[in-house]
Write a protein that binds this DNA or RNA. Sequence first.
DNA 1: CTGTTAGCGCCTTCAG
DNA 2: CTGAAGGCGCTAACAG
Lengths: 341, 341
Amino acid sequence: MPARMEDVARLAGVSTATVSRVLNNPELVSDEACRRVNEAIRQLDYRVNLAARSLRTNQTHTVAVVLPTIADPVINQMVEAIEDVAITAGYTLLLCSTRGDAAREHAYIELLTQQTVADGVLYISPRADPDTVLTLAQGAMPLVLCNYLVENPAVPCLLMDHVSSAYQATAHLLGLGYRRIALLNLAAPHYYPARMRLDGYLRAHAEAGITPDPTLRVEIDRPTYANNDWRGAIETLLARPDRPGAIVAFNDEVALEVYAVCRERGLRIPDDLSVTGCDDILSSRHVDPPLTTVRVPARVQGERAMRLLLKRLTRPHQPIPPRMLLPVDLIVRGSTGPPAG
Amino acid sequence: MPARMEDVARLAGVSTATVSRVLNNPELVSDEACRRVNEAIRQLDYRVNLAARSLRTNQTHTVAVVLPTIADPVINQMVEAIEDVAITAGYTLLLCSTRGDAAREHAYIELLTQQTVADGVLYISPRADPDTVLTLAQGAMPLVLCNYLVENPAVPCLLMDHVSSAYQATAHLLGLGYRRIALLNLAAPHYYPARMRLDGYLRAHAEAGITPDPTLRVEIDRPTYANNDWRGAIETLLARPDRPGAIVAFNDEVALEVYAVCRERGLRIPDDLSVTGCDDILSSRHVDPPLTTVRVPARVQGERAMRLLLKRLTRPHQPIPPRMLLPVDLIVRGSTGPPAG
DNA sequence: CTGTTAGCGCCTTCAG
DNA sequence: CTGAAGGCGCTAACAG
């Protein structure tokens, strides 16, 4: 049986109220009492019972992080940054990965709307219907969205500028002289980055006065984040007689899949096909040729998001900051070059 | 103000005890009462207060996962598997990533030994001193170790067979005819996989009757899991006049770093240098040449570990199962081949 | 099958 | 600056 506050109080010769004060507001207690209490705490190896404290205070000092998967380089970077900030503020992270499964996401939301599970929620690129997310938003719990958007100005959100990421990649390829540029994208309608990337792709074309061939726009449905169905789509695309000269891939992993298909078909990069990725994962620098990609501020977004959530936790009634777009940078490497001939 | 159990009880015309029973032991309640209570719960949108429940039951239905980083493909696979099992058992995961920082790891242990934070702990490949971990083991909280070992038979643990992973890679290279094989390893003395890999490397040499050149054993200290200091070591190694003909890299990411250095120095793989990795990350299939590596059962280990922890949670006094070694498989691809000439 | 009752361990007024 | 006292919301005997 672990020591309770009462045991500490008795040993220190004070009341439990004083012990509680030493723990939470030591400035209200005389130095002498403080010393005795701390000594008793040490002797008894006393630890507060956090359940009891939560019951009283209605706080858990826990933040739930809802995300589609942690097996994604951008997301796990974000989560580490979130955790770094959380720790310094005395918060702990509850991991809720939905794996793209709507039922699971729903179950997690159900859990989180329970009382005293978490003080706030960080929602990262989910795939569920926005209505589901709005359930949370309507609840009392502070909520911050990352790379996701619901049409509700009361919900703060941070977005990586994926319009720009696709725009920069596409414009770079158009600038090199390509006219037939394929876009490998996710079909998920609620997956906001996918919509933004389509936007950027189209905008770059529009600015160049070019109408992109709509059949070069390939959309893959990968709801569970697990199966790499890109392969088939890539093969089909590259087998076409009018195959594109360049590909804007959804991210670096998809771009590497393009590398693999090219190797099989004897296509050389960038001579026969230029390719861009997105995210700047570790391997993108290591492959041959090094991948032209877009660096995204994963850690920065995680930090900002957590800081914002902390602010809402401590000052719930402060105004919601406007949506924030985080800039991204194209990194030109060897996988893109002028069209052959 | 959210509804409490008393509100439900009043609306359903029963006592709070009955409401509690409907929630926890519905079989003890008449169908009629059950129906009325559930109806009231729905009407009031009642949710149990988990802090109150925890205070009473001393259970949190939460499991802490302590790990060095989630930005590692093997670990995040394990964590996802852990979460899958946890969810089906009604448990939630508390994320505790130490980032190789002893102080942070200590702080997390301190938190976890607090009462009613978590019901159990899963410890994955930490880097801290085993004594720190023993603190937890001595505590009342069930603990399961993954890829880590403390000399205490009371602590169950699952290990990937990294003796075998290094053994298989080394034996493969010896079989191809190499005699000067370098080992890129982590220097961390408490990082169990590193010790096992050295073991396997030495054992393969011993069985082949060969005494490995000790200067080909490079050990890197990368305590925070952040800085890739491998580069310098690899460059030094490959600049030697008596450079090795083959390298057993610590994992795939390190192997890809070897690829990069080779490209810079104009060395061809496998003609001028054979390389093996470990973990079989996604990119290892995509690089050119595809990487010879070792597939490790990340998901299986995660599942087993969580199941074991659940068992200890429900039956604390059952005997501890013996240490379990999970088998790993060498996958030969294009990065290894017979020595040139 | 159901209700009454007594805390779980802590925080927080309110008096002193 | 300190103590006494009440209650946060729930569960688990126990008695009916």
